[in-house]
Structure formats: structure tokens, C-alpha cells
Amino acid sequence: MSEMIQAENLTFRYTDFSHTTHLALDGVNLTIPYGQFAAILGRNGSGKSTFAKNCNAIALPSGGRVLVDGIDTMQPDRIWDIRRACSMVFQNPDNQIVATVVEEDVAFGLENMGVPPKEIRRRVNEALRMVGMYEYCMHAPHLLSGGQKQRIAIAGVLAMEPKCIVLDEPTAMLDPRGRADVMHVLHRLHEEKGITIVLITHHMDEAVQAQRVAVLEAGHLILDGTPREIFVQTAKLHSLGLTAPQSVQLLEALNARAQAGLETDALTVEECADRLEAWLKGGRA
């Protein structure tokens, strides 16, 4: 059986204005199965955005290959099938909204696919309900907040009923409220629709919510595992320019200073609170 996204020895080279060749991706092997919620982490210039672009043939590999839904992205005649299977949401919501009315924008992809008008209407309404923006269907996008715009952009790709959505730092330009809303929508799509989510991010708290975390550094895949496996490696993360969740840092600090002997793999505030409570109670007893 094929996988949703299968990168085999993926290499991507590009030449900048001064004719220097850079290696953005260098032999990356990464397979994302159907239905997974994967986060890809890495600092600026680690190649994570380039990886995203290789997932739906916006960028084509210089070496190795990428299979999307079982289709090799190097086949020019299958490019529309690839993009239909795997949609993409970008960082800046302003630069991906094409229409002056919300519902027209959500309909844009479906119009391009040649879906009959009645079916477009049905899918647009459903997609807008999914992202919680139905009541804004007649609004002008430029009057919405960043988080709302990004949810419109997600509705726009969702309406096309893709198997996978790749999001390239979708929350980087949003306020905390907008970020939380977008993350909520992504979890909903993953759980209710079974859509594969590939979230490119540099927010640890977002990566923690994923089923799997892959860390890129200088074009190489450095770490790959569940958030619990990845985020306890604080020293390693630090050397990659990333920070572990604050809960892990707190427990480590307690272990170091008070020899608390705590398990440090608490990824959320709640888990951390439970550990601390157990420790404090145990300490008193």
C-alpha cells in the first residue's frame, strides 16, 4: 500500500542571486502515512519550507524522489492529481486569498476543478462550517482578523476534499487567540475527516499536539519520533536552536536542583501539574 507522502533520499538544490548553489535538503527520507498528524520542526533555513513545497510539486526534487498518494511528483501530467490529493496553506493569509468575498474565495479551488455550481455551494457551506466561519460567508476578507483569514484559507483547501493538507507555518503571523483557533480547526479536520495533516512550525506547543515530530537541520532529518520521545532530549533540541516545552524544562530544573527524580516527559501543563502534585504529596508523606 502506498503512503500519503513518501520522500526517498530527497535532495533539493537551488542557486541564489550570486550564483552560489545551496543544498536546502540533503538526502531526506521521511514517510508520512495516511491519517497522521505530523509536525515538522526546524529553525529558519533548516529546509522545512522546502520540504513542504516538495510535497505537492511546487518544488521538484533535484535528487531522490517524492511520492504523493503513490504518484511520483516528477510526472508533469499527474501534477493536478497530486495537488488535488495534497493541498497547501501558506504563512501569509493575505497572499493566498483571491476573492473579495469569503464564500467566493472558498469556492475558488472548486471552480478551478470544474465542480457543478450546486455541489460547489454545498461544499463551500460545509467547509465554512467545519472551520467555524459560516456566519462570515458574505464578509470581505480584508476586514477579518489574521486567524479568521487563515481559517478561510484552510476552508478553501478543505472544500477541495484533499487527503492531506500541508501547512507552512500557518500560525507564524497570528496572535495567540488566532493560533489557538487554527490549531483547533486542524485537530478537528484530523479527527473528524481523517485528513493527513503536515504542520510546518517552529512553535513547540503546536508540535507537542502532533502524533509525530520530525526535526530538520541544515537539510538533514535529525530527529523523528513521537513528541514524547523528541521533547525530552532538551540538550539536543537546544543545540538545534529549539527549546523544549516549558513543562519539560521545569521538571528538568527540579531534577537538577532538588534531585526530584521526576520523569520529564510531561508535554502539557496538565501533565506537568499532575507530576508536581504527585511529587509534592509524596515528599510530604
Binding site: 511546487i58 493536478w80 495537488r83 488535488r84 497547501m88 475558488f108 479551488g109 478551478n112 476543478m113 477541495m160
Partner: peptide
């Protein structure tokens, strides 16, 4: 790029 991703041709 975003338009191409949404199958505009």
C-alpha cells in the same frame, strides 16, 4: 503559487 496550489489553470 497559492493559486496554482488550488488548481488554477
Amino acid at each position: 503559487t497559492a493559486m496554482e496550489c488550488r488548481l488554477y489553470r
